[in-house]
Design a binder for these strands. Structure first.
Lengths: 242, 242
DNA sequence: TTTTATAATTGGTACGTTCCAATTGTAAAA
DNA sequence: TTTTACAATTGGAACGTACCAATTATAAAA
């Protein structure tokens, strides 16, 4: 399975940007880029649009395509969204993956909400996995995960004290690369205050969503309740429905 | 200037989703949609991809295209999901834009953080605009905006009781179409509790970030503090450069 | 020199076609 | 009935063309 062309081109352009390959912050026009890369203009457009979406470049009709100067100047604040998928993933960036303490692990009937989120039928069962995540010994998140037993029939207690996605990759040879998340905030309840060492006035950040496997199958419905200081979600938003 | 087709189609599909026009959460296949809408399959794909990006639907090759059930559940007031940039737009769902009450308006020296975000130098000045936003008379957000005075030298009190972006469009003929935002949560302080009618245990949601004009110039550094029930951010996240 | 009209450049939208890959449905075979 | 092989369905990638719209560059006119 070879990489899609527009992905290759996009990666190449991005690295050129990093290396200062466009001194005046202006990229060549699309037509000549197409010729140079030996692909169609459509593919160039697609590659560029990915970068636009990431806030790295911007286009202006009639003028050309430009590097976002802020991106070069301060990439630190531009640690953009791609880094935010799973939890162990987004926090592994700072060095070590967080420790996991298993609080509860059982099989229950899927609620209607879980059924629709995970493509299940009435009466289907899911694992309920309740875990506490710690970073350097400090707990920062309570996570409720729900996984259809049909997807991972052999799941054991020992498996869920580590990343589920690692397990899936090893056992099913599928990757977990996509998710739909809703981000919210709410006052903390007593349990959260105890486990996360929060004062009664301190809230939790909530990240709720579905994680998908490579092939589009919903793998997990997750409700993550974070110590509010650990909720930081970065997003580049652009108008024009693209 | 008539609307692009894929935008029209995208809007139509979205409203159909809201109205439950796809009972089994499955959309028709792309080819027949193309025929029904009288557009090419490419245009359908484009429209659908916008919705994928917004986390409203997802596709599965070989199977079809499906509505994200979580999205329907979280039909929130604040749908800041990629098609809505500024506050006035994000909340215009019920028809009317939110009211603005000006709390403070002054000129200050830019902090180091603002300097790097807005491309300013030491000693440069910014407007500080503190506003309270209301929806149907109910305050839901306190907004601190910082705009370089060099960009909008003639800005007056009367201008900031409305959308700044409207002012920019009229005076400078530039559009504000992109932003880079960070989403966080925090306990509420006394002032926020008073203005947003929060209990001491109830938090604020924070959306902080930079708004850009369409020529790439950073226009505003904004810190928005929302009543926690109004913060609902939907996002589609995918790893691997797409 | 300044202004104005025109052309060239550059990205945007849209179409339709070709081929591929993953999944699902169907029918034949065991 | 179960299994297997094959066909149909469905989304993905890529191409190339045509035309449009915003901007910029150029040349002509005042």
């Amino acid at each position: 399975m070879t990489e899609a062309k527009y992905v290759t081109v996009q990666a190449d352009i991005k690295s050129k940007i990093y290396q200062g390959g466009y001194p005046d912050l202006k990229l060549p026009d699309e037509r000549s880029m197409a010729e140079n890369y030996g692909v169609s203009r459509s593919s160039i457009k697609r590659a560029l649009n990915v970068l636009v979406q990431q806030g790295i470049i911007f286009k202006k009709r009639g003028s050309g395509t430009f590097v976002n100067p802020l991106y070069l100047k301060n990439q630190a604040i531009f640690q953009h969204e791609g880094s935010n998928l799973g939890v162990s993933d987004s926090f592994r960036i700072d060095g070590q993956a967080p420790a996991i303490e298993l609080l509860d692990f059982r099989v229950i009937q899927a609620t209607p909400e879980q059924q629709s989120a995970l493509f299940l039928n009435d009466g289907d069962f899911v694992y309920e996995i309740k875990r506490l995540r710690k970073l350097n010994g400090v707990p920062f998140m309570i996570e409720y995960g729900y996984v259809p037993i049909a997807l991972l029939p052999g799941l054991k207690k020992g498996d869920v004290t580590q990343s589920i996605y690692g397990y899936v990759e090893k056992e099913k040879h599928k990757k977990v690369t996509r998710s739909f998340m809703t981000i919210m905030a709410a006052p903390s309840n007593e349990e959260e205050q105890t486990l996360l060492k929060l004062k009664p006035t301190e809230p939790v950040g909530i990240m709720e969503g579905i994680f998908f496997m490579d092939d589009g199958t919903p793998l997990e419905y997750s409700n993550m309740r974070l110590h509010y200081e650990y909720l930081r979600y970065n997003a580049f938003v652009s108008l024009g429905s693209e």
